[in-house]
């Protein structure tokens, strides 16, 4: 569902739906959620590498987006604006998960080995896909994020700049490094 801001269910534009929600037709928000649900879920799943975490992040994103809807201005495309919230939500969820898995801190504290109770739901049994997911998982978080936004979700660098707060040249460098790291892992390491 890239590109056009219209879909089969309703022919209304994102901006029009937002306006309807803000003027009291809260039920119109369901159309916006439906429109972007799959794309948000895909991004969150790729970035968080866990379906449950991804679904949590997406749900919270849409609720936060509703709360912040009054701040949405039509200068940004709604999808890009929504993704700004999603990116931050995924970062927070990833941090939360990292903390749950992290061992206790400081020289004075006993180290713990917290059991990993995360459930990883394998959606695709395709071996190649698992290989790709594994390669993606090895990227530094910011590189993974930049790669997904650019080459999977198809945002341009200006949109990415607004969404992430990073400069365009920094983003280009991240994408380049991500591509190189992926290539190495996909081609070289697995020979």
């Amino acid at each position: 569902m890239t590109g056009a801001a219209r879909d089969a269910v309703t022919s209304e534009s994102d901006a029009r739906l937002v306006e309807r929600v803000l003027s009291g037709e809260t039920h119109a928000y369901a159309a916006l959620v439906s429109r972007y649900a799959a794309q948000c879920t895909r991004y969150a799943d790729r970035v968080l590498r866990d379906r449950t975490d991804a679904e949590d992040a997406v749900q919270e994103t849409f609720i936060s987006a509703y709360d912040a809807l009054a701040h949405y201005s039509e200068q940004a495309r709604f999808g890009a604006w929504l993704f700004t919230i999603l990116i931050n939500q995924c970062r927070r969820n990833a941090q939360q998960r990292n903390r749950r898995e992290r061992l206790a801190v400081s020289d004075h504290a006993a180290l713990l080995d917290a059991p990993d109770d995360r459930t990883v739901v394998q959606l695709e049994r395709d071996e190649q896909m698992e290989h790709v997911r594994d390669a993606l998982a090895r990227l530094e978080p910011l590189l993974r994020e930049a790669f997904l936004l650019r080459h999977v979700e198809g945002f341009d660098y200006e949109e990415m700049r607004i969404m992430t707060g990073a400069g365009v040249s920094a983003l280009k460098m991240r994408v380049k490094r991500a591509c190189e790291a992926l290539r190495v892992h996909l081609e070289v390491i697995n020979e």
């Binding site: 895909r42 790729r46 679904e55 997406v58 395709d126 997904l148």
Partner: peptide, 12 residues
């Protein structure tokens, strides 16, 4: 890899 990652993922 990008093509595979771009495969649709259904929302909950």
């Amino acid at each position: 890899a990008a093509r595979r990652l771009a495969r649709p993922v259904p929302a909950s």
